[in-house]
Design a protein around this nucleic acid. Structure first.
Lengths: 351, 351
DNA sequence: TTGTAGGCGTTATCAA
DNA sequence: TTGATAACGCCTACAA
């Protein structure tokens, strides 16, 4: 039959007795017009019958653009990331780009996972990076930036430097949560914070305090969960209940804002185990609005973040930056979250 | 400063006054031994100080291996796919491969989404394909196979041909579900099936009937859901209840096996709305064991599929096939599912 | 409107 | 053990 290797421009060219440059032109939408109409026609049919497929690897080498970008995220298995990734790929797809993905949180051999991934991506000559890994330890990020790489951050900001980023407005998110609870009549509200080492953990805690302040209120209590996980939520809630016992207060908290849905779910379990009812005894608001939250008992009120849009915008921002389109420099795009009110929040007892 | 483009083998070579071939050898672990020890040393330090980074695009062109494989799946946003993808990438990572991902289900311009994705992947010269898109309409898959591409299927089989595949043992899965219910005392069990157009939909329905048959039982009723979605589950359950009314039976079903968790969740909602209690009136078993199922009310008993392992094995299988290692040809690997028993199943009334 | 030549950064094959 | 040369397939000048 035919030979194994797929035909090249050269093959198509000599099949027609023309030069490969001509075929190259004919294949490029941008320069197609430079080829006479009927020749173009013949080239196209020849290409089709020979089964020609462009070799992007060769084009990449020649033009220095690989049409790939690197995406770094902790773990695609964490439900916040799939919509982000989907947004990224939908945006990249429009321009013929592919994402090279790396899950940076590996149980084994942790530590250099990120650096290795970045190395491999640079070997593949990715044109830029989308970084959703949220650790605030940034050694590698600094190195990466100094190497001149194009970078856009997702759902996190950059401590010192000013890298462009697409984030959710955590101040607003907390304001929505707090305003909702205050409107229901709550005046004593506690916060189950996320790890301070993550930028969202810190931003949401600050946002929570600020939102209360807007109402002339102060935080009833703040306890930090060790991780964004159900068990951490359980533990943190136990601490919160212990605090409540050891420091009896004339007005104990009647509502809780959690930095994350998993923390909120853990808290609900602990409350249930302690014989407290949600929402009649205590209201709870989560954060992220992950899937199936409407199916738990009670359905969890949560701050919905525009994950898909974050992914999409960040990819667009990066693509624009690669074109050196101005206006995309150092931009920090903030997306507004929305509150999804469900059954876990209600007016406090006797309100 | 230094020039923008990253240094090449040539740069490193002339920095040391040696030939680039030598540097090339020094950089390749497999041929490193052919270089004298001290020269190797000098080359390595020179490479480090110059900031040399291998250009994989060039290597790909030269060696004809891109070190990338294409992954086709409907939508990463569907919770079954993240663990599969994670498994794939963990396996690929071990060999320095990257996955190029395409979400094949696009709302707009549906139809040619898959073909376009495949085209782009072939242009990138992926070395093989991992296909988790489950439609049983296979025009494009046939074309792809005939083009000589290496393919491994995930969570689906191939109608006519015999492509290697990694699937879950759906017969066993249904047997686990049915055995569990029968052991609890159920004798009249209905099935909410998935779409017949998906291979899992069909396989699970067949498995269900077979599993009942093993006990000398026959299916109380089978209704097909239009999609793997909560709403479809609600609708299908309504049909099931209607059937139950219109055809009064001396022994109405006391348990339901759903082809999928979302269908099961929808069914639970409909049952609740109809004033029926799960599990006291009716037991329900789901399928897939998606995240947060232990948090719904009641916690859903479900057949847990080894998604991560499916991804990992499929990638390994493909990598082995690329090396022409025998034993990996036409292999169909079947992974055993497990039953996760939770609160949605109990003994039937009066048992 | 088409052809020619050279180069992108590597690897492979010889030769030295 | 190292060097020289020719691909790999495409793109971009520039020349015709």
């Amino acid at each position: 039959m035919k030979r194994m290797p797929s035909p090249t421009l050269q093959d198509v060219a000599q099949h027609l007795g023309v030069h490969k440059s001509t075929v190259s032109r004919a294949m490029d939408p941008a320069r197609r017009q430079l080829v006479k109409a009927d020749l173009l026609q013949r080239i196209e049919t020849a290409a089709k019958t020979l089964g020609y497929r462009p070799n992007h690897a060769a084009a990449a080498l020649s033009r220095g653009r690989s049409k790939t970008i690197g995406v770094l995220l902790p773990d695609i298995t964490n439900p916040v990331f799939p919509p982000i990734l989907r947004g990224i790929e939908d945006a990249l797809d429009e321009e013929g780009y592919f994402a090279l993905l790396a899950n940076t949180s590996r149980p084994e051999s942790r530590g250099h996972a990120i650096e290795q991934a970045v190395d491999r991506m640079q070997a593949q000559r990715v044109e830029g990076f989308l970084v959703a890994s949220a650790t605030r330890d940034n050694q590698w990020l600094d190195t990466l930036r100094q190497s001149g790489a194009r970078i856009v951050l997702i759902n996190r900001t950059d401590g010192r430097g000013h890298l462009p980023a697409v984030i959710s407005d955590d101040m607003l998110g907390m304001r929505l949560a707090v305003d909702h609870l205050v409107a229901l009549g709550h005046r004593h509200i506690a916060h189950l914070a996320g790890p301070e080492s993550l930028s969202t953990g810190m931003a949401r805690r600050v946002g929570f305090v600020q939102a209360l302040h807007n109402h002339g209120l102060t935080a009833a209590q703040v306890v930090m969960a060790k991780a964004y996980a159900i068990e951490s939520g359980e533990q943190a809630m136990q601490q919160l209940l212990a605090l409540r016992q050891s420091h009896p207060h004339p007005h104990p908290f009647t509502a809780i804002v959690a930095a994350n849905d998993l923390i909120a779910l853990g808290a609900m379990q602990t409350l249930r185990a302690a014989g407290l009812n949600v929402p009649t005894d205590i209201s709870i608001v989560g954060h992220n609005d992950m899937p199936l939250l409407d199916q738990v008992n009670p359905p969890l009120t949560s701050v919905r973040i525009q994950h898909y849009e974050m992914g999409f915008k960040s990819a667009r921002l990066l693509l624009d930056a690669l074109r050196d389109r101005p206006g995309s420099q150092d931009a920090t795009v903030m997306l507004p979250p929305q509150l999804r009110v469900r059954g876990s929040t209600a007016a406090p007892r006797g309100a």
